[in-house]
């Protein structure tokens, strides 16, 4: 990091990231703008920030915006990054919800959105498959994937209860040979 970027520049860059990311790809656009265009951090820092954002709770790329904002400008940087990332998409999301509830009675609206939801569900499942393939999954890991899926997806056990059972099991069973 050569010089500290201004708060408006952080917010503007994050607005650009948010508006570019139609249909996912938020992490790719963050990398493109933060590392390639602005050169605020290098690839190594980007990946370590991404790892941190993934392991803590919260939406990953929102967490990353907090990480980057804090690293660049401290707490004001966090506010600037989050405002840039969230303000316009927040208004857009609510306006789209308003449109939906206004026009949901039109016969074509619900079938079209159901088709999109079926595809988006496939997107999410495909993402899970990719994450699974990236890990040299052993049998115990696969069992934990299956246990989490059955508890939460099939039996519909509340998340907190499921985690209170799953996390200790995972910690005990998965030997952490860490980097």
């Amino acid at each position: 990091m050569i010089e500290r970027p201004s708060l408006p520049l952080i917010a503007r860059s994050y607005l650009k990231i948010a508006l570019s990311s139609f249909g996912g790809g938020l992490s790719a656009w963050t990398q493109q703008i933060v590392v390639e265009e602005q050169r605020w951090i290098d690839d190594r820092e980007f990946l370590s920030g991404l790892a941190l954002s993934r392991m803590l709770p919260g939406p990953t790329m929102v967490n990353f915006a907090v990480f980057l904002g804090s690293r660049l400008r401290g707490f004001p940087g966090v506010v600037a990054a989050l405002a840039g990332l969230l303000a316009v998409p927040f208004i857009g999301a609510v306006l789209l919800a308003m449109l939906y509830f206004e026009y949901q009675h039109i016969p074509q609206v619900q079938p079209a959105l159901a088709g999109m939801a079926a595809a988006a569900a496939g997107m999410s499942i495909g993402m899970g498959v990719k994450m699974l393939m990236r890990r040299a999954g052993n049998l115990i890991e696969l069992l934990i994937v299956a246990a989490a899926f059955i508890l939460i997806g099939i039996m519909r056990v509340p998340l907190l209860v499921s985690l209170l059972f799953l996390v200790p099991c995972a910690l005990l069973l998965i030997r952490g040979e860490t980097k």
């Binding site: 994450m131 999954g137 994937v145 989490a148 997806g153 799953l166 996390v167």
Partner: peptide, 15 residues
């Protein structure tokens, strides 16, 4: 340790 749980949750959401 959490990654396999996360993957199971993502499958559950899609399902």
């Amino acid at each position: 340790s959490l990654a396999p749980i996360t993957i199971g949750l993502i499958f559950a959401g899609g399902w």
